[in-house]
Design a protein around this nucleic acid. Sequence first.
DNA 1: CATCAGGGCCCTG
DNA 2: CAGGGCCCTGAT
Length: 326
Amino acid sequence: MKKTIKLKLQKTAQVKPTKPFAFDPTFHKPDHFTSGDNYWEPGIRWQTWNWRKKCLGIKFSSKGTIANPLIEIKVYAKEKLLAEFVDSLIEEIQYRYNFNLDLEDFYKSFSKDSVLGPIFKKWRGMRPGHPSSLYEYLIIGIVLQNASVRRSVQMFKALLENYGTLLEFDDKKLWCFWSPGRLQNVSIDDLRTLKVGYRAKSIRKMDDNFSQGLIDEYKLRKQDREAQMTELLKLYGVGPATVWYLLFDVFHHLDFFNHVSPWEQKIYSKLFFNRNPENPVPVSQLLKHFERYGKYKQLAVHYIWEDLWWKRKHEHIPWLEKEIRI
DNA sequence: CATCAGGGCCCTG
DNA sequence: CAGGGCCCTGAT
């Protein structure tokens, strides 16, 4: 059993995101599979955060309303933090969770859409976003490949519990992601003992790329989408499926929807065309269907997708269960 | 028990 | 540019 590192509250900040802002669907995405590094209950999210190689605990609490939002951010750390460090962290949090995104135009454009209209009523103020850095998300992307959710969770937990750090803060024990370069003394065979299979090579090479400074997340953010895509596809173990996730979750492109995996194809076919999974609608036709959402294509997909997963939390959807194989 | 497909990607021919 | 191979797991 690994030693737990106890953190102390070092800083409390309050942040006002743009209005409207919905706390729960922003901080809890039922389809995001990562576990062990976060915990959610209505109005509160605990999340570990590796920032500039320091392992932090963060507690987000909703202190406002959807119309008038206010978020309290408590930062826990082992030692005192410099103001500049905290400021940069808060700025990064705002970026990753899209606190400053203006959704009004999206809502205005599609409030009369028969699919999105009702979803807006439920999830008005929900932001897309993801707490992971590019490095972290790439590792997550690799364990998502060619595996069911359960297996992905298993691989992710094994990695986290071997190379991460167990933190204790605010009576929660959660694992913090390791820093890039951590795997430099880890062999591919070591990784394989964690049953990540052939992904071991991709994981190790990814760590090499970052420790050699071959990829810079912040430089990449400033490039356009095509350039980002080209750079990402150069990375060993990254293909079109992973890039599509990255462009939305890490680089926040709301308009890019070019990839539908087989299981997603079945789900969309059922949702939009009421087709059975054995007889799904061709991917090209699905992509065409989403053209109507123009520059908000992927954001629209996100809203529809999250709505489905939230439904699943409260009601049993037999056909969906069959497809997701958790 | 054996076989196989899977929420991809790389590499070869 | 098509398709085989890769790891492991759960389903059949």
